[in-house]
Amino acid sequence: MTTLQEQRPAVPNSGPRPTRRLPDLFRILCWVAAIATVATLAWLIGEIVRQSWPAISKFGFSFVSEAKWIPSRDQFGVLPFIVGTALSSLIALLLAFPLGLAIAIFLSEDFLPLPVRQVVRFTVEMLAAIPSVVYGLWGIVVLVPMMNEFGRWAVKAFKGVPVLDTLFHAPAYGNSLLTASLVLALMILPTLTAISRSALVAVPATLREGSYALGATRWETIFRVLLPTAAPGVVAATILALGRAMGETMAVAMLIGNSPRLTFSLVSPSGTLASLLANQFGEASDLQINALMYAALLLMALTLFVNIAGELVLRYTQRRTAGIR
């Protein structure tokens, strides 16, 4: 009690509440920062809507449903690019998902000593640190020649085979949908792995013990208890990875061939909304600028939707695992 009283005078003596001023300033700064963030986003969306308005009022929904992109004739329809965006990101996901989940399981189990696992984990997460343009360069130097060979072979090999004939159709080039998808798969691998791994690690150890005690093997425990418990986290990882693949620009623009032709052939040049913007905006004028802004609006809506969905699933996961603990 005496020590408290000894300390107390120190505060009143040091002036009329000097400590209040700093928190006030800090609070104002926080408000400014928060408002600035929201305002910037609103400004960004507002400007894109304003700039795309001529195209929106001229083309309306036909912009989405038509497969013509001929700037010289003022004909704009982004269907090929929507198809390209969807196909390239889905193929990337199809390739990266099994690999990413396998790595996540591997990293969350003790198959290997911890130091080895940490090196693997670090390496996979480093994939996220490589700049997009470097992936693009690597793709041009390494993948494009390989995919050129593969494309030509595939077109010949699958000629006349149902479905495959559509997916591997002439003209085949090194710069193609599949080439871009391969690089995209590599780029989204760290997202998939990291979030899936943390979902698996978050499964309470008591569930693992419970499963072993009932006579389950390690694999039965992984597939029947750990994965189902971590499933929402894995789903969230998948959706966030999809969002990343859809919005990825530089590497895709360097590898996909940038053709405005509507095609379902994986070995042919194609385009995505993001690659379209990157390629054409520099030289665009008049209505083409408005059309590109409209395309940007679509892309933003798509990725925003996917990311919000992913975030919601992730939150659901956290609530769910909280229920188990």
């Binding site: 008591t206 569930l207 419970g210 005690a213 418990t229 769910r320 188990i324």
Partner: peptide, 13 residues
């Protein structure tokens, strides 16, 4: 051998 743990650990099923 059945085992019951300190903290109940039902599977999320």
């Amino acid at each position: 051998i059945g085992m019951v743990f300190q903290k109940s650990n039902p599977f999320p099923k």
